[in-house]
């Protein structure tokens, strides 16, 4: 960028781009970024401009501010792919050591929502396991899973198994397809405490229905930390739309279209 080009841009964006480049190329996680004073001198801008740049990088989770100590490079986001693997598998493939703390493990009647997710009647017995998932000992998500009790009667007999998927695979019920629904949300106070979130409150909630062929085997609700987690979604070209052949269609009826919301696919 030439000085003329740079001058045309907002000054705080110049500082921000400089820091982002520095973080991407030279600094490691936990390193301190240059001081506010060094930045004001380097770019000949006000301290307010430097703070604006730093605030933006803190807000997006690239930097983390520690009271009285300074501003540091935040841990990288883990870019988990939305696919039918377990948290543990996804973490290991990224060089992270997965861990789990069991919060709840019970067998009881399915709520209407869980029943719908598992194609069961309301009240049918289901196993429920809630766990805090960690990667390299850092809390990453709270995961609540329900499995129809009749599919895996002894699931919780000897405590909570390390991997629910492993149990399903052993029962020849390995999930083969599913659907995830994602929403952005603010963490509840309990969630923020469990996840060790201090400054940021943004989380991503997901609901997953997992099927083994035609059988709904697991319904999972997860809450992921917004400051540690990125979602990676492979995309492909949409399939062609299916339309009735003209010869067989009735003449179009003039009608006002209602809005068609996007759903999960």
């Amino acid at each position: 960028m030439t000085p003329q080009q740079a001058a045309r841009r907002h000054k705080h964006l110049v500082v921000r781009d400089y820091l982002a480049e520095l973080i991407a190329t030279e600094l490691e996680v936990g390193d301190a970024v240059p001081s506010e004073r060094a930045l004001t001198e380097r770019f000949d801008v006000s301290r307010m401009t430097v703070r604006q740049a730093l605030d933006a990088l803190v807000a997006e989770g690239t930097l983390v501010r520690e009271q009285g100590r300074g501003t540091f490079v935040a841990p990288r986001h883990a870019d988990f792919e939305m696919r039918l693997t377990t948290f543990g598998e996804e973490a290991r493939r990224r060089g992270l050591e997965p861990g789990a703390e069991v919060l709840e493990a019970t067998t009881g009647p399915a709520s209407p929502r869980v029943a719908r997710g598992l194609d069961l009647d309301v009240g049918a017995p289901v196993h429920h396991v809630a766990r805090l998932r960690t990667a390299d000992d850092t809390p990453m998500s709270i995961e609540s899973s329900w499995i129809p009790a009749h599919l895996a009667p002894g699931l919780l007999t000897d405590g909570v198994p390390d991997s629910l998927y492993a149990v399903l695979r052993a029962l020849d019920l390995a999930p083969t397809w599913g659907e995830d629904t994602l929403q952005a949300a603010d963490a509840t106070p309990d969630e923020a405490r469990l996840l060790g979130m201090t400054t940021q409150r943004a989380v991503m909630r997901t609901q997953r229905r997992s099927y083994a062929g035609q059988t709904a085997v697991m319904y999972t609700q997860s809450t992921f930390r917004g400051d540690r987690y990125s979602v990676f979604v492979p995309l492909r070209e949409a399939r062609p739309m299916l339309v009735p052949r003209p010869a067989r269609t009735a003449p179009p009826v003039p009608e006002v279209l209602t809005p068609t919301p996007e759903g999960a696919s």
Partner: peptide, 20 residues
């Protein structure tokens, strides 16, 4: 039936039908 279909959009796990 086909007469009620305006179009069907096949997604990865769903059929999204616009009907008359």
């Amino acid at each position: 039936g086909v007469d009620n279909i305006v179009e069907i959009d096949p997604c990865t796990t769903r059929l999204r039908a616009l009907v008359t």
